[in-house]
Design a protein around this nucleic acid. Structure first.
Lengths: 195, 195
DNA sequence: TCCATTGCATGATGAGCATCATATAATATT
DNA sequence: AATATTATATGATGCTCATCATGCAATGGA
């Protein structure tokens, strides 16, 4: 009964979430307006509130999609390196600390891309919960990626390592264009691989 | 010739910068409007453009003030612990990773508070430069704070340690209210002090 | 004492925002 | 084939924002 078929409408919704899960990590929550997002998905702003109860609901969906994509990625990664945990850890750390990761905010680590946006009292509701849920799921994968020859790395080590990786990426982005930017990434890489 | 004396006007400007250097780290650049900031400083919005060329100029001044305050703080800190570098490093790491630091965004580490705001292409101008300049000055202090019994810690170690501290704080803020939030801080503390 | 200067307040401007109301027209159902 | 449904588009609402224009009134120099 719609102007488009149900299947098309479902696809539209998926397109909107896909666009949001790329644009929100890239430009921030407040950097993506509803009209701009819908235009990116090939629709107009009026279609938005037929699909989402609010902008907050969209952010939740986009956040979950971004984490789900990375969880699937690391499931594959763990499977591929199942017989060489040492290599898995080294390859992961090298990839994470590549300068190209700094530029790829929309496709890179959602923890690093969203953590600044999700902090603060005005985001204490469902967005925060979606972010924390995604983080917990992603950290489960990191236990194995970072375990090396062990099955799973100890939790303190996982959280501290992730803190260093995310911190180096976020600081590298905040100083992009300055000489110190690359140093954050290379120092984290060096300390994690050699220290 | 003004409605208030020159001295009062100078004091007003300092008040505005002081308010901004607390509110901007606390609420983010876009979370502090010019009218709200001026009200906080006891003035009306109209007075703003007599003192600052633009909101960007204010952010630059606030950023510099925030970093300058911390530089002075750590100069004192280094002097106080001049004869016991080991204690300086341990005390600093314990203070940085306290849960109360997570809540004190406006008074805490400006690197952690501002890094998310300063990333992105729209902040690539003078704000980014002010942030990077402040970071470089602050990192000079950290070389000595983190040196332990050495005079200065090696640069890779400083940058990696700061990455972990900032990362743990930023992630703890992004997950505030969730059980994992405290874990980021305690894990970073444990690894840096014992690992 | 007088007057030019200027810091501040009031108010306007135009833009962008999230959200809602309504109309349209194509689809599902009958 | 007729009709009820509904995804989408157009457009409006009320808000907040950064910035600018104007006028006032107190000050500091003459």
């Amino acid at each position: 009964m719609p102007r488009v078929s149900r299947k098309e409408a479902d696809q539209h919704r998926k397109n909107v979430i896909a666009a949001a899960s790329r644009l929100i990590p890239e430009r921030g929550i407040d950097g993506v307006s509803v009209p701009a997002l819908m235009a990116e998905a090939g629709l107009t702003h009026g279609a938005f509130y037929g699909q989402f109860a609010s902008k907050e609901a969209l952010v939740v969906a986009a956040c979950e999609a971004a984490f789900a994509e990375k969880c699937a990625l690391y499931d594959d990664f763990v499977a591929r390196y199942a017989d060489d945990g040492e290599a898995a850890r080294a390859v992961f750390i090298k990839r994470y600390t590549r300068p190209s990761h700094r530029e790829a905010r929309g496709e890179g680590c959602p923890m690093a891309a969203l953590c600044g946006d999700v902090a603060g009292p005005e985001r204490a509701g469902s967005i925060r919960a979606a972010f924390a849920g995604g983080m917990n799921r992603l950290l489960e994968r990191f236990e194995r990626v970072l375990g090396g020859k062990r099955k799973k790395a100890p939790r303190d080590e996982v959280l501290a390592t992730v803190s260093m990786l995310v911190g180096s990426l976020v600081l590298a982005r905040a100083t992009e264009g300055q000489p110190i930017s690359d140093e954050f990434l290379s120092s984290a890489r060096k300390v994690l691989l050699e220290g």
